[in-house]
């Protein structure tokens, strides 16, 4: 393989810019997903009537449709009823719509892993529901939820690659552009892979480190 390094150097800034966009969308999308996930999981945990039903419908829809289709609907469909969002906003909202359900499931499994007797003993100490959640349930749930949440973070970052489908100039988009314009396929693809590795590898390593720490720290009882 003869790589054209001049070309790679020349278009490096394109990739950097695209990587920034990818990271930005992923960052805000994941932040929103976590927020949605916490709200949904808490509602489901406390079995709050009605809202809980609505949330389980949302979770089913979100988990059983592809992000790309969700984005097409948000970006091309919704403007027809007057909801016009920029591609970036669509990407972030779409990612949060998808990620919210995944986060919710991970967080909920953590919440539900906390034994009922823990909650009762908190209650018998006169602790309110809110205080029990904050001091007793949540910290213990975290240890169980974090590996799933980390896996979701990685999953959601990889999912951002589909935003090129609604014409956002992310890493995929730039790569496709360069291949189309100059036919420098190998160089463009190598840079694509390298950039994704730069973004994802550290996160993946941190995630498995956290997971291992949690496993060894296992609270026991």
């Amino acid at each position: 393989m003869n790589l054209n390094f001049d070309f790679m150097q020349k278009y490096l800034p394109w990739y950097l810019e695209a990587a920034v966009l990818t990271v930005k969308i992923a960052f805000f999308g994941i932040l929103l997903s976590l927020l949605v996930g916490v709200v949904c999981s808490v509602v489901q945990y406390y079995r709050i009537p009605v809202i809980r039903r609505i949330i389980s419908v949302y979770i089913e829809i979100s988990r059983n449709t592809p992000l790309l289709v969700q984005l097409f609907f948000l970006y091309f469909g919704l403007p027809k009823i007057g909801i016009v969002w920029s591609a970036e906003v669509c990407a972030i909202v779409g990612l949060a719509f998808l990620g919210g359900s995944y986060m919710s499931e991970s967080i909920r499994s953590g919440l539900e892993s906390v034994e009922k007797s823990q909650i009762e003993s908190a209650a018998s100490l006169g602790m309110s529901k809110l205080l029990t959640m904050k001091e007793v349930i949540f910290p213990q749930a975290l240890a169980v939820s974090v590996p799933g949440v980390c896996a979701n973070v990685i999953f959601l970052i990889t999912e951002t690659s589909v935003v090129s489908g609604i014409a956002l100039a992310d890493l995929m988009y730039v790569t496709k552009d360069l291949i189309g314009l100059y036919y420098v396929t190998d160089e463009a693809l190598i840079m694509l892979v390298v950039f994704y590795l730069i973004i994802l590898l550290p996160i993946s390593i941190i995630a498995s480190f956290i997971e291992r720490r949690l496993r060894y720290a296992g609270f026991g009882n």
């Binding site: 951002t160 589909v162 463009a188 994704y196 590795l197 994802l200 993946s204």
Partner: peptide, 15 residues
Amino acid sequence: RIMPQLVLLFIAYFG
């Protein structure tokens, strides 16, 4: 696992 599937698709299709 770590590579977006779209990247893999690009590699297979273009690369």
